[in-house]
């Protein structure tokens, strides 16, 4: 068959019209299915990011003022003690909540790998807090539980102990919020559980024959084999912890004395509450840099503690 013939045949196959060739084209199909994400990405991520970068060099107040101020917002940040404080309490929160959450998630995931019929039931049960976790409703419940006359203090009284002023004391106020974060360990747990399943049983059998005990097996086999998953969970939790907002906004409003005035909450307060959108945008970009740095550091150190099986063999 000549080339000409093949072409006409193809045209016949595809219904001959240009439109149907277009609609049956692989690229068209691909982009159509991608469209929801691409539109969302542009409308809700990329364009807002671009405008916020622009605002960060202005004194935009959302109403009538928008003059170019250069790097003034960024310079002002370093003279703002509330900003420094918010950075400090956020870092504190991240360093306390992320390891606790991951340890807890790993523990539960590990316990739930045992062959038992109830495992999937328990797994769903432990995942439940994560489903409802980020919501305002749970934060309100938390606020009630830790209130002056809330569930916890009432039980402390019943046990003959002194009550704890949870949200009135700057040193204590962060703990209920950290606890709430740790309590939502479900998604990390599921990922850990999937990772645990992937570890070949032969490793354990061999270790057992060599006389290794449970602890040795956990630290010599489970942890190294799981380290890529740990890295993934660590990075994801690190990022989401830096953005902590809802709990603090609903439960403490940043108090007492700014002890829970986390970074994102302060951005909100300055940007929406005081309408200093330019300054708040600058703050958001600094946050992006900080989070980027933290993630970069984790990846950099991961070479030394993440075990890559394919590279070894």
């Amino acid at each position: 068959m000549s080339k000409e013939n093949i072409k006409t045949l193809n045209r016949k196959k595809s219904g001959q019209s240009g439109w149907s060739r277009f609609i049956n084209n692989n690229n068209t199909v691909g982009y159509t299915f991608l469209a929801p994400f691409i539109i969302g990405f542009f409308a809700f991520t990329l364009i807002p990011m671009g405008t916020s970068l622009f605002y960060s060099f202005t004194n935009f107040n959302m109403i009538d003022k928008m003059d170019f101020v250069g790097f003034q917002n960024y310079i002002d940040l370093f003279n703002d003690e509330r900003f420094t404080n918010s950075l400090w309490v956020t870092v504190q929160y991240v360093f306390l909540s992320v390891p606790l959450k991951l340890a807890f998630a790993l523990l539960i995931a590990f316990v739930l790998t045992r062959p038992s019929k109830l495992v999937s039931f328990y797994r769903s049960l432990y995942y439940l807090p994560s489903l409802i976790g980020g919501s305002v409703a749970v934060a309100l419940v938390w606020k009630q539980i830790f209130a002056r006359k809330g569930l916890i203090n009432m039980n402390l009284i019943a046990m003959g102990l002194d009550t704890v002023n949870w949200f009135g004391n700057g040193d204590i106020a962060k703990w209920p919020i950290i606890l709430m974060t740790v309590w939502q360990f479900g998604s990390s747990m599921l990922i850990f559980a999937a990772g645990l399943k992937e570890i070949p049983g032969t490793y354990y059998e061999a270790a057992k024959i060599d006389g290794a005990n449970g602890w040795q097996m956990f630290f010599r086999i489970t942890l190294p084999c799981l380290s890529p998953i740990i890295l993934f969970n660590l990075v994801m939790q690190l990022i989401s912890s830096f953005m902590v907002f809802t709990q603090a906004y609903v439960i403490t409003s940043g108090g007492p004395n700014d002890a829970t005035m986390y970074y994102a909450l302060y951005v909100y307060k300055v940007g929406i509450n005081e309408r200093r959108m330019g300054y708040a945008s600058a703050m958001s970009w600094v946050m992006l840099i900080i989070m980027g740095l933290a993630t970069f550091l984790v990846f950099k150190t991961s070479k030394h503690w993440v075990f890559d099986e394919s590279a070894e063999s």
């Binding site: 929801p36 994400f37 969302g40 990405f41 809700f44 990922i191 999937a194 990772g195 992937e198 070949p200 890529p228 998953i229 890295l231 993934f232 994801m236 890559d308 099986e309 394919s310």
Partner: peptide
């Protein structure tokens, strides 16, 4: 078994979820 592949799939899953989270 390649953990890097799992890692990539997980990242993709998270990207998708973050999109749905914007309601």
């Amino acid at each position: 078994m390649n953990f890097k592949k799992i890692f990539a799939v997980l990242l993709a899953a998270v990207l998708c979820m973050s999109l749905f989270a914007c309601n």
